[in-house]
Each structure stands twice: as C-alpha cells, then as structure tokens.
Design a protein around this nucleic acid. Structure first.
Lengths: 210, 210
DNA sequence: ATAAAAAAGTTGCAATTGCAACAAATGATA
DNA sequence: TATCATTTGTTGCAATTGCAACTTTTTTAT
C-alpha cells in the first residue's frame, strides 16, 4: 500500500512539512486526538497504529463510526460529522499521525517542484484506495440479510486473496462491527452456513463452497 | 460543487484531454457504458445525467450497487467490482461522461504547467467531496434500525440545509434504496415517527421535532 | 504459569423487518 | 383530458435480527 511520502527524500519531506504546516504526532493508547487537532482545516493520515471514530448521542450511547488503521485518512473535509461536537477520535494503541493543512494544497510556493507533484500523486493514490474500501463496505452494508452481508464480504476477500480459502484480517467480533450486525446473530448465521455446507469456518479460517 | 475543469481555459482543457487521453461521450438513456469503456485504466466523471451501477448474480438477481449523478466518479480503481463480469453501468437518462486515463496522472509531459496542477487539485476536491458523501452513507447504513437510519439521514440533511424543516432531494422510493431498506417498511416507520410526534412528513417535506 | 481480559459460541424471546399483494394518489404524456 | 406509469400508502404474516444473559475457549500480560 502506498505511503504518503513514497519516493520523496527526507530533505524534501521536510520542505513539504513546512509547506503544509505538517506535523507528525505520536499518541499513546486511549487518547482523544480531536482535542489536539485543528478541527477545521487539517486532515490526518495514520502512519502507524489505529484509531476509532466514535459518536456519542445525547443519551450517552456510543456508536462506532469507523475504525481506521495505517494510511487511513480522517478530517473534517472527509468526516463532516467530526465538525460536530458529538464525535471523538480515540487511539486504540500507540499511534503516529501526520497532520497536513489541507488549504495549503492550493497555494504552496513549491507547487511546481517534483516532490510536490509526487506528494499530490501519492495523496491521490491513497484516496483512491480509500474510496475503493468505502465502496466495498457500502456493497456489504446495503445487503439486507446477515447471510448476504457475510457472503458478499467473503467474496471480496476471496477475490483479494485469490483463493476460496480465506483468512479474516480481524476477529469475528470486529467483523460483526464492520458489517454492522449483532455479533451473536452473526455467529448463529455462520453456523447455519456451515450446516448447509455453503462454507467451512473455524475462527478466522474460512473456505467457500460457492 | 466543483467541476473537474474549473478555472481551466478551453485551450488548456483540450491539452489536458490529450494528456489524459480523455474523451467526453454522450449517451442516451438505457445504455450500458461498460461496453464502451476501457475497463482497466479509465475513470469516468459524470458531467451531467445519471447512471446506475448494477450487479447481476449467477441466478439473475439484480442488485443496485450505486446510483451516480453529476460529478460522481466511477472506474475500476474505485469500484473494484466493475472489473468483474457481473457488473453493468447503465444510463438512466441522457448522460455525458468524461473518461480519463488514470495512468497518465503520473507521467504527463505538462506536469509542471499551471493547468495541470489546477486539474489535479480539482480532481482532489471532487474526490474529497465524494469521500464525504460515502462516509455519510456509511454512517446511515451502519445504524441497525430503519428508525435510526431515517433519523441519521434527516439529521444530515438538517445540517446541510441549515433548518429543522427539510426537503428530500429525491423520492421516498429512492430514499428507501439509498438507506437500503424495504420501501413499505420504511413508510410504516415514517408513520410511527409521525404518530409519536418526532417528525412531521408529507411526501418530500419533513419537519424535525428532535 | 496463571490470572485476567478478550473473543467465540449458545439460546430463548421479543421486536423489527422484508415480502407480497394490494389500493389510492400523483405525475407525465400524447 | 384520458391513459399509462410511477410513487405513495396500507396491512398480514413469516423470517430475520437484536438483545440479554449466559458458558467456553483463546489470547494477553505479569
């Protein structure tokens, strides 16, 4: 997967940091990043680690909006909800984030230098990748039954991993949150799929017979 | 909303078209675009009109993957499913699409010219907008009840339109597809929300009391 | 190695939803 | 303005799902 500063020398990376008023920040586990960032014009790119985007309702209920990992992007431009008060961005582990000031993409002084163009192209590539991920998730979420959500997800993984035998990239608990269904209901549905001989499953190892 | 060729002169637009091997194509209603496009390296941007992205299963079932309108972007880079055989892109009305060869973003000869940079920035702005839309839709789709899906969507609209009195941008039938629930069940839920005094609704006009 | 924490798996039950099959209202078109 | 098409609205019913309240297994940390 592409890195934001791929093919850019350390020296030029430093220049870019100046242009974009960028900063790289290390957070420990359980920090609410939003307290530390300029809410309006920054986008953050995760260099390593992972974060949750959590929305808290008026009555205290917490909804997991998104879980982000390496190379994922967040910021008010992308998550319009972040602008609102109810939202928090919490690190799940030690996490390194690079913030850039989005406005500077439009008025940088080094705009015609090679490294600037490389940077914008890297950013574009990352965002395309992100778009693809979002579309895949929407493809799953629009399915009306847990069964179809699971089968859609498995098919995606099967295509990516090039095999009918796939390995889940995360726990079943996380999968349930990803496809936004009740965990116990999801495991029940997995049981049915096994009983009907449509799949074989043992924790994260799944074989598809369809 | 930004246009891909905003602030670019007609002359430079033509140059960009050459660089990106771009072409603008007009389709009449009901055409499957995918038959006409380079499947692997093009992205299409809708200048006007609208299209459906439809997936056809082995047993002939059609699933609406997405409905795209002006400035929406599609292509194998974004919709990985498009690569697969089961997917078709069908115009819903007379539609104008601009195709660009994505690879050329990386090796264009006019890479340091102003119009090239303007173009890439326009593209970036459109994609950020798209990302935001996708995130909003995911925010809705991850809610577990029709009621919460509706209320989440209404809240989004309310924020956008800056009022507790909102107007749906499309029909209730389309809304049901957008939030991916059964239409009759959705209308039933709207009825309950009205009975409980949480909203007022009459076709596309909705007033929020929460 | 063992305690603690997280994940996996089960089940009963009530609530929600999708589906089917309608009727009524609204909009478009010739 | 008559007709056709689309959208809106209704309801019964069966299937699916979420929720709660567990037990068991696996993983992590000291």
């Amino acid at each position: 997967m592409k890195n934001l500063f791929e093919n850019i020398s350390l020296k030029n990376k430093e220049k870019l940091f100046k242009i974009f008023r960028a900063s790289t920040v290390k957070y420990t586990k359980g920090i609410n990043i939003i307290d530390y960032m300029d809410r309006t014009n920054s986008i953050g790119i995760i260099d390593s680690g992972s974060i949750d985007i959590v929305q808290t309702d008026y009555d205290g209920n917490e909804t997991l909006i998104d879980e982000l990992t390496t190379n994922d992007i967040f910021g008010s431009t992308i998550y319009s909800i972040v602008l609102s008060d109810e939202c928090s961005i919490v690190t799940k582990e030690n996490t390194i984030v690079t913030f850039i000031d989005y406005r500077e993409i439009e008025n940088a002084e080094f705009i015609k230098s090679d490294f600037y163009i490389t940077f914008v192209q890297n950013l574009l590539a990352i965002i395309f990748e992100q778009m693809s991920l979002k579309n895949k998730r929407i493809d799953i979420l629009t399915k009306k039954t847990i069964r179809n959500k699971l089968l859609t997800y498995f098919k995606q993984l099967s295509r990516e991993q090039g095999s009918k035998s796939i390995t889940l990239p995360f726990s079943l608990t996380t999968l349930a949150r990803f496809i936004s269904v009740d965990r116990s209901a999801m495991i029940r549905e997995l049981k049915y799929l096994k009983e009907e001989g449509i799949i074989d499953q043992k924790t994260k190892k799944i074989r598809l017979y369809y």
